[in-house]
Amino acid sequence: MVDQRIERIYSYTIADKWNFRKNMVRLVLTVILLVLVTACGSIGLLPTSDLVQKAIALGLEVRFVA
């Protein structure tokens, strides 16, 4: 009886292995995306005040022209 339970616990099907691999790929992609998103703030890709002023001026210009 105990052997059957142990066998059931350790017997993986092909679908189980596929789901595990799919979940691992999702996890790795999520980690990569999180690293990229958080790295953008630390390597200087944030907009500068000069760039923000130019964007506001361009937005106002487009609003008054249209």
Rank of each mutant, 00 (worst) to 15 (best):
Y12N: 04
Y12R: 10
Y12T: 01
Y12W: 05
T13K: 11
I14F: 02
I14W: 01
A15P: 00
D16W: 04
D16R: 03
D16F: 05
K17T: 07
K17A: 07
K17W: 00
W18M: 10
W18E: 10
W18K: 13
W18Q: 14
N19T: 06
N19Q: 13
N19R: 06
F20W: 06
F20T: 10
F20H: 07
F20V: 00
F20Y: 09
R21V: 02
R21T: 08
R21W: 08
K22F: 11
K22Y: 09
N23H: 11
N23Q: 14
V25S: 09
V25G: 02
R26K: 15
L27K: 12
L29D: 09
L29P: 01
T30N: 09
T30Y: 05
V31H: 03
I32W: 04
I32M: 12
I32D: 10
L33I: 03
L34Y: 08
L34T: 10
L34K: 13
L34I: 07
V35R: 04
V35K: 01
V35T: 06
V35C: 05
L36T: 03
L36F: 08
L36E: 10
V37T: 11
V37E: 13
V37G: 12
T38Q: 03
T38M: 00
T38G: 00
A39L: 05
A39N: 02
A39S: 08
G41A: 01
G41R: 07
G41M: 02
S42K: 14
I43S: 10
I43H: 12
I43E: 13
G44C: 03
G44Q: 05
G44I: 01
G44W: 01
L46R: 10
L46V: 08
P47M: 15
S49I: 12
S49Y: 11
S49E: 11
S49F: 12
D50N: 01
D50W: 00
D50Q: 01
L51A: 14
Q53F: 08
Q53H: 07
Q53K: 11
K54R: 15
K54L: 15
A55C: 06
I56V: 12
I56F: 08
A57S: 14
A57R: 15
A57V: 09
L58H: 12
L58S: 15
L58Q: 15
G59P: 04
G59N: 11
G59C: 14
G59Y: 09
